[in-house]
């Protein structure tokens, strides 16, 4: 996973609340079995008019999306963050996120920033004006061109994983292989019905 530390760019405003994953990536494009190249289908219906925010010259190349509350609610499709990533989006700022969508972002090196409503409004204001926004994960700050700063919090483990671009699976295998085997040995005794007809687990 590519690390996330700090970025500056214009931020595309998308203030509607409850933008769900069917809007972010309509279901018919889920027939695609690749991760890459989904950007062209992101917000497909909303982009048909040609004036969708991400297609307007002012927000071309935006790395940041400032979205409304509960962004990414709905289905678990990881195709939604993959599609946004493919469009270049690396950070989304919102009052709140759909839970699975947020988890999916983190696993693709994308930073979800949750701001309280008042701060979010100011960042949204800057986004609408096409002003540059700086997101710094090291200091936990969003900085606007007018000098104002907004603190955001991220759980330490998520922060570290993003900063270092850690691969979750490698990390688990390196650090917890024995603990997993020990758990399985215990569970064979406490819940043997979950292990009927099964040989010893293999580690990869």
């Amino acid at each position: 996973m590519e690390p996330f530390t700090r970025l500056s760019s214009r931020a595309a405003p998308l203030p509607q609340a409850n933008v769900d994953t069917d809007i972010i990536l309509p279901a018919r494009f889920l027939l695609i079995t690749e991760k890459r190249g989904l950007g062209q289908y992101a917000f497909y219906e909303w982009r048909k008019g040609g004036d969708f925010v991400l297609d307007q010259p002012r927000w071309q190349g935006a790395l940041v999306l400032v979205a409304g509350d509960n962004f990414g609610c709905g289905s678990s499709r990881e195709h939604a963050p993959w599609a946004l990533h493919d469009l270049g989006i690396r950070c989304i700022v919102a009052p709140g996120f759909g839970e699975i969508f947020r988890a999916n972002m983190l696993r693709n090196g994308m930073l979800p920033v949750t701001l309280i409503e008042a701060d979010w409004r100011k960042v949204m204001g800057a986004a609408e004006l096409g002003e540059p926004v700086t997101v710094d994960l090291l200091s936990g700050l969003i900085m606007l061109a007018n000098g104002s700063n907004f603190e955001f919090a991220l759980p330490e483990d998520e922060r570290e994983a993003l900063l270092n671009g850690w691969d979750e699976i490698d990390g688990i295998r390196a650090r917890f292989g024995e603990a997993i085997t020990a758990f399985e040995t215990r569970q064979r005794v406490t819940a043997p019905w979950l292990w009927e007809h099964e040989k010893e687990p293999t580690d990869g």
């Binding site: 289905s75 678990s76 499709r77 699975i100 988890a103 999916n104 696993r107 979750e168 688990i172």
Partner: peptide, 10 residues
């Protein structure tokens, strides 16, 4: 609970 594809891989 529902999970994403990266979590399936995990």
């Amino acid at each position: 609970f529902g999970i994403g594809t990266s979590e399936i891989e995990c």
